[in-house]
Amino acid sequence: MARVLIVAEHDGRTLNASTAKCVSCARTFETSAIDIAVLAGDGAAVAAQAAALAGVTGVIQVDHPANESALAAVAAPQISELAGGYTHVFGPSTTFGKDLMPRVAALLGVGQLSDIMSAEGAWRFRRPFYAGNAILTVEAPQDRPVVATVRTASYQAAEPMGDAPISERAVDAELPSHTRFVEIRSDSGGGRPDLQTASRVVSGGRGVGSKENFAIIYRLADALGAAVGASRAAVDSGFVGNDMQVGQTGKIIAPQLYIAVGISGAIQHLTGIKDAGVIVAINTDAEAPLFEVADIGLVADLFTAVPELTEALGS
């Protein structure tokens, strides 16, 4: 039976929800083990959160100073060493997992599957390609480990209701020094919900016009308790940072409510939101492609409609 190893994504303190989504994917087929590997400088807190996820059978905590920052070149040899005895090695389809998992697969001498959106048994998976214009069903061979990334927008996070054992493991693999972490810069958020896990998201596009004008997007988001996103055009124009980009090459999200303001709706953007519960489009251009997928469309000047909506929600 399948034995799944999941690579935890975390920031040293908190386990990222993407890990709990990988657990949910593994729980859709028959397994005899779902273990989570936590690589960290000091992973005790993250390991405890991983051990609490429903369905998890064990957590392997690998503490090492080199694991202080998540570097694929450093993590991959450790994961490929831990992979022995597992039939599947999963990571999330976030920038963390996309960076790491192909490197793990190549070290194991096997191929990798990207963006699992559903599993039909332990060796048969569905994944999108061509910017989500097509869905591929593939079968992986059973004679070698299945290394894959899990499309996080396709799964709900496993609930924290378990109590799996945590074991500590020393690093045996030789770790390279050719890759060094310098720093991370983050310019968004401002206390707002996390874009990837928020149940409500308000996004702005080119139509918002400027960095200053984005204030009306933030105000609407705050009235809703929503996270803020953006189209590629808005990021390219410098209105907001790259970490807010939603779409094929940005974040793929699945909030219950998605409000797109001044976004025309290029296919690359639609790829990032097609799993949203309800999509609302507000745009002056009645022909904008986003209206084709929107559940509720409002053709209006966003500079009057958005403040009006913000006020209506506040009252």
Partner: peptide
């Protein structure tokens, strides 16, 4: 390594409504 079993178009979202 991977055997392609099928390719299909993605599920379409049902058509929405316009509000004024």
């Amino acid at each position: 390594q991977f055997r392609v079993l099928g390719i299909e178009p993605p599920a379409q979202r049902p058509r929405g409504v316009r509000v004024s």
